[in-house]
Nucleic acid binder design. Sequence first.
DNA 1: TGTGATGTTGAATG
DNA 2: GCATTCAACATCAC
Length: 263
Amino acid sequence: MPELPEVNTFQQYFNKTSLKQKIHAVQVHDGKIIRNVDEDTFVEKITNRKFVSSYRRGKYLFGKMDDGNHVLFHFGMTGDFKYYEDEMDQPKHERFVFIFKNGYRLGFDCPRKFARILYLEDLEKYIEEVGLGEDALVISEEDFLKKMEGKKASIKGFLLNQKIIAGVGNLYADEICYQTKIHPASKINALKPRHKKAIYKTMKDILTTAVNRTAYYKDYPDNWFFQWRVEGKKAPKGKGTVKISKVAGRTTYYFEHYQKLYD
DNA sequence: TGTGATGTTGAATG
DNA sequence: GCATTCAACATCAC
């Protein structure tokens, strides 16, 4: 489930469990998700190092090691960390694991192998190459509005584009559209300034709330859209029923008439 | 059994 | 060249 709030929770978990401990060994069970170096290099570069800090930008989490190099964790759709001691607790789809000197392990679990792990010697260069946008919780309103200038794409496509702003994924994009009463297929160039400002503010509010609640869906406010992600489900107060369609190539849920289409 | 799923990429399209 | 869309990636659950 890793969008910005989830990755933020992973980061806290990583910081709490895995910083400042010497990495005694690295075991790779399936090297396919390590994208830029081979397994042996990965193991060699990380063994005997320790993580000293972490940096999150959007859905990307960078672990900084004591030699200044980084490991990038991108969780794809199903990536997850698990810190454990007993080998019996190894997650089912663990792809690699860091074994610390104290005997504990940080496993990287990922059923679908959409995650990508990179060993990086130049963090800035990598971010530049990928063209990764500013973090959705960091970007200023001014910059956000500037990014919208001249864009004709759907608002949902805009929010999902990690090169523009980093961190919003499919579920939170739908949530933002719902809370601003804007149809996700609305064109950016058809939106009024007040709509654009509302989208910015709502995005920040939603992400901040989600982060504060550790991305735990069950703790989200009752009036959020998450619970309505069921096609045909009836909503109270004349919002109609939930519609499902494809916008920007992704499955999209919304209230057809309640959320106005600007085209 | 077939279909689609919280993400990203590079190729294809307009 | 630019902005945008789409199929592909690998596996599991319904």
